[in-house]
Design a protein around this nucleic acid. Structure first.
Lengths: 357, 357
DNA sequence: TCTTTTTTCGTGCACGTGCACAGGTTTTTA
DNA sequence: TAAAAACCTGTGCACGTGCACGAAAAAAGA
């Protein structure tokens, strides 16, 4: 039971005592600061090894409190009725903000309209001008995002990406889902639910489909599953850049007329509620509906059995972890930090009550 | 942008200055200690409210370091080849242990054999004799668990339950799944996958089925779904108290002979691997198989397409949160603490890579 | 050898909180 | 009215670490 020497006891003081030097010297060795003889440094390092010394993070941050606050810039889409999704990451970010504020880290918000690229560029410039200590962004527009990442690299500012990734640039980490497998999983669900002789439909609803990385990746994954396990002619495609309900309903009605065997609809984003509204209006609860995101509107349809499956990627946790990983890095100097691939969760009317967003 | 007054600045010192009292007095008010005039107390409390004061946890724990270490007793089943499941909670517990050790909290382990009630009782007695500062248990045997909970109540020791619950006793919180809905969700999955004219089968494999709260609750939920949405005669029951493979295979073979329309099998615990082994041996990958737990053995079958769905309840997180909630309570005196119902996750071959246990 | 520069090291304060102890004030008792 | 008791409040140290400042020692220059 007793076993090895307990590591937790003895801090800097014990090291100083054993090495027969002062606290200041030990401190210099630990923090790799100059001004200590090589011989002394080695001796102290040996004792640090021997004691398996782990600095007390509480005391460390407490001591640093006097040094002033660190600023973390957060860039994400603003929240409209249409893009309610982004409320969740923001909540996670705010939660983290509250937790780390007293440790001398504060979060600065920058918002942009997902439909206006110039605003995004403008906000990127503002961030660069303000030179924060850390950056968290959702890289909706690739060009400006890369510019910001290059800037961060030069200034040695840690940069975290969220929600979708730009892999080949220099960044601290990516926090978000593996979108291809998200689509692939949808294909699998469709396969399980598909009855004899039925067809499935994939629906993209977004103003800009060709530039939307998220939608494209999910579709890739979905199609990959169909190629592997099903037949292409069991699938009907539909792209809609007009996101108004009337337009959506009209297109869907026409398509259902043409393909009466459709038994399953897969919507590649949170606009699944539009389809649900339409399905309910025409009284076709029997059609299996799969979509995205744990939003109030979607949950309503889920509870009522109109939507059958919601795929969710913990947007709140994404925001929270994004900020916290910067916090970890800045405060505790945690150098090693892998990308964090968020689980792809399946939510139905039977388990939504326990889901943590 | 400036808006309201920033809450983070100013701690006890600022309160003392505004109330025109000393630090000691403020401290007494905050910690509800005696020896301060009612008038003064009210004045200080008002200022605390006004400043929205939040104590600095770093400093708080740092100050308490001198006070000595707290001991947390953990009681859970030991890990055999048959009960590999319990490795995960233990990992979570150990992870928490490492994190909180330097804050002066240490974890003491107590193990028992799930098949031997007397050992459980014995360990409960050992815990009571050692009088720890906190207790975390998996209440496999109800009678002894209640005895321990009563002891804790008398001694004011916080007691956390994990994995399954005993609701009506005095306890700090429960951390685990809502088992009824877990079974209900399985029913729903079966419904989605059931093809025309097929039957489903529910299989319980455990030495003691009638005393196993977890299995019974899941079965309740599953049957509830069938009553609501399907027909009872689409369901075949099977209970097996002999957990050896040969015996399982024999029973299953016989039953499949009798009910050839069986298209889906639901196993109510992690023994689903036994059924998978059998299915693979008879070459019936077409039968949909649903079971429990993110274990290596089960994952193998999942990847190969023998098992189709695994329901998982984050056992590692359960252990982690169990210890951490005690830590929170003991160190930060977080009085309000709800039960934590773990999400019921659906894992398939398409998303298992991203699952966090 | 003495002064100047550089290197190396020790000391003291700060961070925000908990707690023991002592000093002070009011109320009770003799 | 003085002494004793009860009550209230202020002061100082500790927790472990980071950093500034200055002192001591060593090295370089004259």
């Amino acid at each position: 039971m007793e076993g090895k020497e307990d590591n937790s006891l003895g801090g800097v003081k014990e090291i100083a005592r054993r090495a027969n030097v002062s606290l200041g010297t030990v401190d210099r060795v630990i923090n790799n600061r100059a001004g200590v003889a090589v011989k002394t440094r080695n001796r102290v390092n040996a004792i640090i090894e021997e004691l398996n010394y782990q600095p007390n993070v509480l005391a460390r941050r407490l001591a640093l409190t006097s040094r002033g606050t660190l600023r973390v810039a957060v860039l994400l889409p603003d929240i409209s009725e249409e893009t309610e999704y982004w409320k969740a990451p923001l909540e996670g970010i705010n939660k983290a903000d509250l937790e780390i504020r007293q440790y001398g880290v504060q979060v600065e918000h920058y918002f942009f309209d997902q439909n206006v690229q110039s605003v995004f560029a403008e906000q990127v410039n503002r961030i660069m001008a303000n030179a924060p200590d850390g950056v968290l962004i959702t890289p909706t527009f690739e060009k400006e995002s890369i510019a910001l990442m290059k800037f961060c690299k030069k200034k040695k500012i840690p940069c975290v990406l969220m929600n979708s990734d730009i892999p080949d640039q220099h960044r601290l980490c990516y926090i978000g889902p593996e979108l291809f497998d998200s689509g692939y999983l949808s294909g699998q669900l469709v396969h399980y639910c598909l009855k004899e002789g039925q067809k499935a439909m994939i629906v993209n609803i977004a103003r800009e489909i060709e530039n939307n990385v998220a939608i494209l990746r999910k579709e890739d994954g979905f199609l990959a599953y169909f190629r592997e396990k099903l037949s292409q002619d069991q699938l009907v495609h539909l792209n809609m850049t007009d996101t108004g309900y009337a337009s959506v309903a009209a297109r869907l009605t026409a398509l259902l007329e043409a393909h009466q065997q459709i038994g399953i609809i897969y919507v590649t984003n949170s606009r699944v509620a539009l389809v649900a509204q339409w399905l309910e209006s025409i009284g076709r609860k029997d059609i299996v509906l799969i979509g995205y995101d744990y939003l109030d509107k979607n949950l309503d349809y889920l509870k009522r059995g109109v939507i059958d499956f919601l795929l969710c990627e913990k947007p709140q946790e994404q925001g929270y972890r994004g900020v916290m990983s910067l916090f970890q890095y800045l405060i505790f100097s945690t150098t090693v930090q892998e990308d964090y691939l968020i689980p792809i969760d399946i939510v139905t009317s039977a388990n939504y009550r326990y889901y943590r967003n």
